[in-house]
Design a protein around this nucleic acid. Structure first.
Length: 111
RNA sequence: CGAGUAAGCUAUGUGACUGCCCCGUCACUUGUGGCGGGGAGGAAAGUCCGAGCUCCACAGGGCAAGGGUGCCGGAUAACGUCCGGUGAAGGCGACUUUAAGGAUAGUGCAACAGAGAUAUACCGCCGCAUUUUGCGGUAAGGGUGGAAAGGCGAGGUAAGAGCUCACCCACCUCUUCGGCGACGAAGAGCGUGCUGUAAACCCCACUCGGAGCAAGAUUGAAAUGAGAGCAUUUAAUGGCUGCCCGUCACGCUCUUGAAAAUCGCAUGAGCGUAUCGGUGACGAUGCGCCAAGAUAGAUGGUCACAGUUAUACAGAACUCGGCUUAUUGCUUGCUCGUAUA
RNA sequence: GGCCCCUUGGUCAAGCGGUUAAGACACCGCCCUUUCACGGCGGUAACAGGAGUUCGAGUCUCCUAGGGGUCA
């Protein structure tokens, strides 16, 4: 997943948290909001409570890898934040993939 | 075989498909594609020290304070680090540890217990008077305590005491020998017998300017914005450790908004290897190599094989040298114990 | 990433190196009251962890862990 698809500014994160709608599963939480800029931007949030930097980086890498196939299928002009919950540490990759797909369907973001 | 001790190595590998970041090159539609190359650690961690680098006023004057180090010699760019020694302590031993200057410069503290804590007399012993006991002498014995005026024997005495003497112990002064030195060995003195604590204040010697890459430089933009309060120019605020002087900058404080790009930034006290010097830390010379550089922050996913408890601690953010802490698997030397030859 | 600070019962907190570590609220038991509250008496309960200095450490020194602040 290239970097230009990632959500960067703290301001943008705050806006999504404020106006966005959230869906949850036991592995992940998804928050989405409409944006003014073109394209899709995704931010991944992993709390310090979940583990040390090695664990957090590993979770972020797996989430990016699992999310990237869905990137061309998502409607334009949306910002998405995906928050990791504690059980992601031990989840299998296919479980993460399935969880992301179900959350995207629930939020009706797929084309 | 068990227990221990010291030193050292290591931190999954190979292949397939598919992704991410950087560099080079080619192409064009100038931000995409093709090809090639590179891409986390021994601690990257904690931030406990030392440096490089950058800015501040190149380190101002007076008064006063503060931090650090602390046996000797060496290594190093430097260090509170390392190496080799000396002394002391621990261990049967291999070996390990060591904030190790000064308590005879001065001050403070030493609870409780105990008669008494840096000086004393409770029990006791002795003498005298009296025969409930009182006065005087004494510190050998008892008991308290972490610590009670060096130990033992003899003389001496009313009882005793370094009061005197011999021997021993410790310290001080001096001499000789060995060592670069810390120090060690021996001897002499008609010298002394001194509580502990300086990670209590302190004294002595040496040493330390401050801030830190969010340092800072350049370019661009103009948002040098808006609101509230305070002050009204020898002031106030900030910088130079504190105060005064001096000097520089500049209205000050709070709330809120905005906050771009490039450089710094990857060739360095660098890494590997061989020889030589040195007990060693380390140094010299030759040859070879270039090895992450992001800016919300790059190494992933799915399998196969080998191997396995195949997994621990753990993710670069300016860069090095150490220290400390966390942690996987293994090798070798030595010591002690047991058994066998 | 850099630089600082703090950890004492369940909570808020005092504590000069020295007997058994104050105090308040909370909790438990008893008394008081017809009962509850207030009040009285009593009790349970702590020095973040590990080393060192010292006769003796909550206090002094070092290391570790956890928490907090600040800098564009």
């Amino acid at each position: 997943m290239k970097r230009r698809y990632s959500l960067k500014r703290n301001k943008e994160f705050r806006r999504v948290y404020r106006v966005g709608k959230s869906q949850g599963s036991h592995l992940l939480v998804l928050i989405n909001a409409k944006s003014k800029t073109d394209g899709v931007h995704v931010g991944f949030s992993v709390s310090k409570k979940i583990g040390n930097s090695v664990v957090r980086n590993r979770i972020k890498r797996r989430l990016r890898e699992a999310f990237s196939p869905f990137l061309p299928l998502i409607k334009e002009k949306t910002n998405i934040i995906i928050i990791a919950r504690e059980p992601v540490k031990t989840a299998k990759f296919t479980e993460i993939e399935r969880s992301i797909e179900r959350l995207l369907q629930k939020a009706s973001l797929l084309k």
